[in-house]
């Protein structure tokens, strides 16, 4: 098992929590950010998502992956530059004491939910036809009634 399956499982659990808290009917789209140094393969994660979403609230959801490149800051000369994942050396001075400022992200950015609308009238319990007396009482106890 590749670790993309574990990551996909964690993603789907989090998405289900967000959908439940917001009372969503379904998840339309999930957007995540994967840095080139996160150690996660976007294609493998996409394949895992296509299988593992089945039966969940995200069963028909699309997965959007935004890949972010690596950027480093040189601790010697302060230059910030793009870098390859296995060559994190300052392009300006050649210094190898650098700090990665972008490219390590593995984040859930946002979730697009389809919210359940209010229940349609046909699904509400039928309103009983009030008698004359009940109608007056109902009016007296209804909203805005005066004693």
């Amino acid at each position: 098992m590749m670790h993309e399956l574990s990551i996909c499982q964690a993603l789907l659990i989090r998405v289900a929590e967000i959908a439940a808290v917001n009372g969503a009917a379904a998840v339309e789209r999930v957007t995540i950010e994967i840095g080139a140094l996160a150690g996660v393969d976007p294609a493998l994660l996409t394949a895992a998502f296509a299988v593992m979403r089945a039966g969940s609230c995200a069963a028909t959801a699309a997965l959007r992956i935004e890949s972010t490149g690596v950027r480093i800051e040189c601790l010697a000369c302060g230059t910030e530059s793009p870098a390859a994942p296995n060559r994190l050396i300052c392009t300006q001075c050649g210094g190898y004491r650098t700090r990665v400022v972008a490219g390590e992200d593995l984040r859930l950015r946002d979730v697009e939910l389809r919210l359940a609308g209010l229940p349609e009238l046909a699904q509400l319990p039928p309103v009983p036809e009030p008698s004359g007396l009940l109608r007056r009482r109902a009016r007296a106890s209804g909203p805005g009634a005066t004693a």
Partner: peptide, 28 residues
Amino acid sequence: MCNTCGCAMKPADTVTIDVLQGLLAAND
């Protein structure tokens, strides 16, 4: 449009929830 009375209320709507959270937050 509502099927019962023809009012303009949409039966469903979409909303985007910003999360910005690490995917391994539970493991962390």
